[in-house]
Design a protein around this nucleic acid. Structure first.
Lengths: 226, 226
DNA sequence: TGTGGTACTGACCAGTCAGTCATTATATGG
DNA sequence: CCATATAATGACTGACTGGTCAGTACCACA
């Protein structure tokens, strides 16, 4: 038989559809890598485990991603981009009052983010980001920078419309997001033993900050903007 | 076992200080380890480099610290404890108004912390904490838990005295500290290319939050304390 | 049925590093 | 000035892992 040639029978491997290969393999690998990286961090992840998780041999990831770092970048990209673009789009186009937007869609976005498994890539990013400048630069340009810019515009809109007083929150929109980071880290470190209601934490922060910058409404006051 | 007898005799001697070695070496090593860990993270740090930095041989750290993890714990302990105890003590014993305390000593404490090199051990802690449960537990018990408790008491004091309205900040004192974490991470990731005035960031946060929870003073209001 | 191209495999290599231990240097007590 | 305890050394080991590459299995098409 023709099979005789393969008489040096290797361990039986699962045959794969040749067609899908080039198309789906990278996604499979990225998905597996996401799980591993978010669980074990960058240095702690063995590419062998990524491969195993993707049900692929050890060498294959290197066929699609030149190095471990390259694979990590691909993971970041796949996790970050879409979601953040979405909320940014909403910020630009919503016709809600700024307060309503912050307390509604924006708050829910943060709550969802913090609760999702995606939040866990923050850990390796924080831990090893400084070793990969182009990676953090990518992250800064695509998330931080644009997010801050958009939030600033949002607050400014509130100020211009007289909804908000002009405060320094305008200069530090990070304050609206800071608790999300805290919540993520809390989750990843302490959640197992010390529960924290992160949804309420985030909600409280938005409420308090909005309270602090809201222009008084009870008494009729002509535009308090100085 | 002829030595056994003489060993028994020697046992009676009082502890003699053999030069400085035993006393100063551990501190030397911990200091060097702190530098390395804060620069390169836990996994990224080679004990050989720690040793070199402390100007001792590669084997010596193992004479004083059983493993790398043990050394890391010693670093955390040495960095954390004193400073946090200090501010906690002040919180308990100050006779400033709560607002004044938050805007004064407390703010300065955070600003100093964020600006100091100590802040950098946060990175390895976040990155690898989950792999060392007793370490995070130690950190939680010694810093988080007590810090939160003290802050809660502080806010409660403000509420009882009528200085503050009763708000949910009481339940989430983390909000007072969250921006410090953000600032630390910002520094360690982006500071090189994208400056952020962390002192002002922290100050703004305290101001806004205090604003939000401060009981109105302009109009005479009977004490809201329950 | 054979042949060629390629997606894929997994043994292997080279480098790294935590941790060990036989050995050396030195202070102290006698 | 020896004897001894011990601080300190640094070559070494064993385990591990990023990355390579010679080869295999499978498909398409002739």
């Amino acid at each position: 038989m023709a099979q005789a040639r393969s008489a040096q029978r290797k361990q039986a491997r699962k045959p794969r559809r040749r067609r899908e290969g080039r198309d789906v393999r990278p996604q499979q690998i990225v998905a597996a890598a996401f799980e591993e990286f978010s669980e074990k961090g960058f240095a702690g992840t063995r590419l062998e485990d990524v491969a195993a998780r993707a049900r692929v041999s050890k060498g294959l990831p290197y066929l699609y991603f030149k190095t471990k770092v390259e694979l990590f970048k691909a993971v970041i990209r796949s996790v970050i981009s879409s979601h953040f673009d979405l909320i940014r789009g909403q910020m630009e186009s919503t016709d809600l009052s700024v307060e309503a937007f912050l307390k509604g869609p924006f708050l829910r976005f943060m709550q969802e983010l913090v609760g999702s498994r995606r939040a866990f890539i923050a850990r390796p990013l924080i831990a090893e980001g400084h070793k990969h400048p182009e990676l953090t630069e990518f992250y800064y340009d695509n998330v931080m920078s644009r997010g801050i810019e958009t939030l600033t515009r949002l607050i400014d809109r509130g100020i211009e419309s007289g909804e908000f007083k002009p405060t320094r929150l305008r200069d530090f929109p990070q304050l609206l997001v800071a608790p999300a980071l805290t919540a993520i880290i809390w989750r990843s470190l302490f959640e197992r033993h010390h529960h924290l209601d992160t949804d309420a934490l985030l909600a409280t922060n938005v409420e308090l900050l909005v309270d602090a910058i809201k222009a008084p409404t009870a008494a009729p006051v002509d535009g308090g903007a100085t």
